[in-house]
């Protein structure tokens, strides 16, 4: 792969804190290597800002290998930028060419208030999990792991749903700022396993209730979430969530 350097124009959302008004600022960065990751390009910009005595741009990031789910930039109209199945930290600069202008915004949703610059508060996701995204088993309760055979396809499907990294790209991409993909991934992960059976009805009802309480919108099946999910979580999970919900609603049990 040929390496090259580029100069770019960046328009970045700056906002001092949750209370203040934000605005876009325009920055020029020079000699960006095509081998850098998108966040390393931001590191360069931040070092530049610091050398000018200015405050660097605040953004969430941690593992930088696409698994922690912390990074969260809305790049040129797409959460995590233009590469499919890729988090911002794994987006690399060879996507861009010299002279490009890139617009970077925070996730926008009522349930994800901006904390500072590009950093948002995603604690609503934790509260959705608190509402039922678990199996109630205390440490020490467990029987031998192989006492519970689980068909490979079920286990694989459950894993595919559990691969969600909780980054919030689904919410950011959805025109309704709905968190159905996130919610459904957890419901599907647990509903597909026999361990999840005892609590499946209360789980789905409580988690949906919390989802709504947090201020996320309703799903209208536009599928933008699936298209933008860095872990390719399928909307088949939303199908399963809906079926679980109907099952819980229509269940004869109280």
């Amino acid at each position: 792969m040929e390496h090259y350097n580029m100069n770019l124009t960046l328009k970045v959302w700056r906002q001092q804190n949750a209370q203040s008004q934000g605005q876009f600022e325009t920055y020029q960065v020079k000699d960006i290597s095509s081998e850098m990751s998108f966040l390393e390009m931001f590191d360069v910009l931040n070092e530049q800002l610091i050398s000018e005595g200015k405050e660097p741009i605040t953004f969430d990031h941690d593992c930088r290998e696409g698994i922690c789910g912390a990074c969260s930039m809305f790049i040129d109209g797409q959460p995590h930028g233009p590469w499919s199945e890729t988090t911002t930290c794994q987006l690399h600069m060879r996507q861009y060419k010299n002279g490009d202008t890139i617009v970077v915004e925070p996730w926008r949703a009522k349930a994800f208030p901006v904390i500072k610059d590009l950093m948002v508060d995603r604690s609503a996701f934790d509260r959705i999990i608190q509402a039922g995204g678990y199996i109630s088993v205390n440490t020490g309760n467990a029987q031998d792991a192989n006492c519970l055979p689980i068909a490979k396809d079920k286990a694989d499907e459950s894993f595919a749903a559990a691969a969600c990294i909780g980054c919030g790209a689904c919410v950011a991409a959805c025109k309704n700022a709905s968190a159905m993909l996130f919610l459904s991934a957890k419901v599907a992960h647990l509903a597909l396993l026999p361990q999840g059976e005892p609590e499946r009805r209360s789980r789905v009802m409580n988690m949906v209730e919390q989802h709504d309480k947090e201020g996320f919108g309703a799903c209208t099946n536009t599928m933008a979430c699936e298209a933008e999910c860095p872990k390719a979580i399928s909307i088949l999970n939303i199908r399963r969530l809906n079926a679980e919900y109907i099952g819980a609603v229509s269940s004869g049990r109280d």
Binding site: Y134, I135, V137, N141, Q143, A145, S158, H189, L193
Partner: peptide, 11 residues
């Protein structure tokens, strides 16, 4: 413990 919690290990 992890299986009981619903960790989807490879099978």
């Amino acid at each position: 413990q992890c299986v009981a919690q619903g960790v989807p290990f490879a099978r």
